[in-house]
Design a protein around this nucleic acid. Structure first.
Lengths: 224, 224
DNA sequence: CAGTGCCTCAAACGTATGTTTCAAACAGAC
DNA sequence: GTCTGTTTGAAACATACGTTTGAGGCACTG
């Protein structure tokens, strides 16, 4: 074929293996044997392992950031000048992610886990790459969050955004394992959509919590 | 000296390097050169790299789980039969962590990051080790959470606990970087205690969120 | 002082990794 | 068919890793 499918086979295999095992723990030989291509093909088509990692992210993130931009556009248009609410903003993000065309049945969960790993695993090159390539939708999301929570001080908002990021990245990065546990323990199956549907109310409530700062709540009678 | 300090030097160096770079990304040679000991010392004293990882966790986790047990004992005693509230339970955990004697000024944040990595990085042996050794305080904390949130279904509670873990582990694991950013941006200094004081209300509010499941909140007028 | 147990050291071992090489196979144009 | 640029193939390369080895040092006992 004109544009060899070797590239896609490598990307597919790499995406899944990275999500399962992390970046450092996945060797090029694992990838090429899973993809049934020659070892040298990776360096031929991508140049290096790091460049392959970037390509795996770019394949998903580039169309996703475009989808996200239009979702934000629609949201702001629908609000006619008023700032969108926190729930609306969070859902615009979530639905954009969930609605992306999926290559496999694992689909979005693989990519959520990759994003979590990107944040967690301190791969310097990856962070730089993501910041350079996708700073615009990220900044826009931050601006929407700010306008949706005018009652928060800048410092409070800063920390609570970190808490949101953490809950999301962490949950998504171990979502397969968590789903398995849940299925074995309670016999319940869970889709990424359902996880997101549980996560968003949690995040929204946390963001809008009254900052009562009740550190020493001891010594008082426990409230029912 | 009778009990060589080589062991402690290795543990100190390993702890910091693991927290900075992850487990697979940290080689024994990095550890031994930072600790200024011979390469073979690790395998002599610990047996293997995996065993060293376990030892790093055990050094912190064993005294911490003891502290936590007494904190929970005191809490339940103070409540005289009534189940402790969510806030009380979270604060008992937080204060136990913050009040642990710290080896360095980085102290608790290093260990929070390690815990996050343990969960995120799919190191099978580590998960097994932690589950085997520290299942008791963990189960007890889970039981307290259950009693403090009787309104939640088991599945809801499960996921929200994951969200809490994520927000905590992620924030604490990158708290150094986040603190720096905040100081440069807004000129505010923040201690781990203050982060915890912001985190607990966020978590409590998220745990107790009304599960309105308002997925399609679009099409409605934005609420101010 | 000889001997014993614990520890350190430099060096090496075997294996796995990312990357490179270069010849062979292939496709499309003339 | 022949030429040309692109892609694949098997093999090797250099390096880094975790682990093992065996000689040496050091403190303590008898």
């Amino acid at each position: 074929m004109a544009q060899s499918d070797t590239v896609d086979r490598i990307l597919d295999a790499a995406e899944e293996l990275f999500a399962d095992r992390g970046f450092s723990e996945t060797s090029l030989r694992m990838i090429t044997s899973k993809a049934k291509v020659n070892l040298a093909a990776v360096n031929y088509h991508f140049g290096s392992k790091n460049a392959l990692i970037h390509a795996v992210f770019a394949r998903f993130l580039t169309p996703f950031s475009a989808t996200l931009e239009t979702a934000f556009d629609e949201l702001e248009e629908r609000c006619e000048g008023n700032p969108p609410t926190l729930n609306q903003t969070l859902w615009a993000l979530t639905e954009s992610a969930v609605r992306m065309p999926q290559r496999t049945d694992k689909g979005i969960s693989i990519f959520m886990r990759l994003l979590g790993l990107a944040y967690t695993q301190s791969q310097g090159h990856l962070r730089k790459f993501l910041e350079q390539e996708y700073s615009e939708p990220f900044s826009r999301f931050m601006r929407l969050l700010k306008e949706a929570t005018p009652q928060l001080s800048a410092v409070d908002r800063y920390w609570r955004i970190q808490f949101m990021l953490g809950a999301t990245a962490f949950t998504m990065s171990s979502s397969d394992a968590l789903r398995d546990i849940l299925e074995n323990k309670l016999g319940v199956e869970t889709s990424v959509q359902e996880i997101a549907a549980r996560l968003v109310p949690f995040l929204a409530a946390g963001m809008q919590a009254e900052d009562t700062m009740l550190m020493p709540s001891f010594g008082q009678a426990p409230v029912a």
